[in-house]
Amino acid sequence: MDFELDTDQQAILDAVGVLLAQYAGPGRAIDLAAGDAYDFDLDAALADAGFTQVAATRGTGPLEAALVTEAVAAAGGMVSFGAAALVATGLGAGDLPGPIAISEARPPGPVRFASHARTLLVLDRKADEARVVALEPGTCAAVRSSFGYPMGRVPDALARSGDALGGGSAARLACWWRLALAAEATGTMAACLDVTTRYLSQRRQFGQAIGSFQAVQHRLAELAIQIEASKWLAREAAFQGAPAEGVATAASYALAAAAQVFAETHQLSGAIGFTREHDLHVFSMRLQTLRIEHGGVGAHRRALSAERWGRA
């Protein structure tokens, strides 16, 4: 048991940090969002440096992939990194062309990254299989959305097509998808708290920094506890190779926390938090997407309960 980064992990995160300083950050995310764009430059930079395949590289594994996923999310990277580095790699699906989007077999609405995706991973619970669908860019029509990511509508026929990944692949896809969501939510929540803490340390009302009031401090402290716990639960589940109970725990806890992080950071930031001139929305709106994807908190909780205590 060791909660500190080892030298290799630190080196990986330092190198990722250099890329993210160049190709990410809330300002860049705001510009990209204005055109529903995908950050192909960041995607290529992460892939070229080997980070997308870090889980499948000798000497590193899913934990390192989760650490990078967290960092990319915390920097507001407009890339489908978790789907590539954790989900596709975890499934052993080979080096699939990116961007990668993940969808239910009957997607209830627009799918994150689908409008730009060249690969669609489909979770078909009914057929109990995961499928890989190759996409031509533009197959999934772009959908305008306020929720922080480029979205596309996956045609029904497309979601029913593809090459099956074989027995047990539905359960494995469900697990790696949960892990990716937990890691992304962790980084995104940390960014929400960081933006809010910095703002409330500077913003003065009633002659005081708002962040000095105890009523405000306690609410931020409560968020800090949940975000820290989310982080360690996700990292532990990654280290263990995405076991069903562990990822359901990590995802259900983190995404329940996400609802509170959204509500509290916006409430405490006041009107500036709703504007596109302030960074909070870059991260906070994404939390709602992560919270709802893959069946939402209720589905993660039911999965956790079934894994731990069995079904009725």
Partner: peptide
């Protein structure tokens, strides 16, 4: 019932990992 059990399990697990963080220190 199932979801509340799982919610509570998450809260227990959160406390466990945060405690382990302290034990590591």
């Amino acid at each position: 019932v199932v979801e509340r059990l799982a919610e509570a399990r998450g809260v227990c697990e959160a406390a466990r990992v945060l405690t382990y963080r302290v034990i590591d220190e």
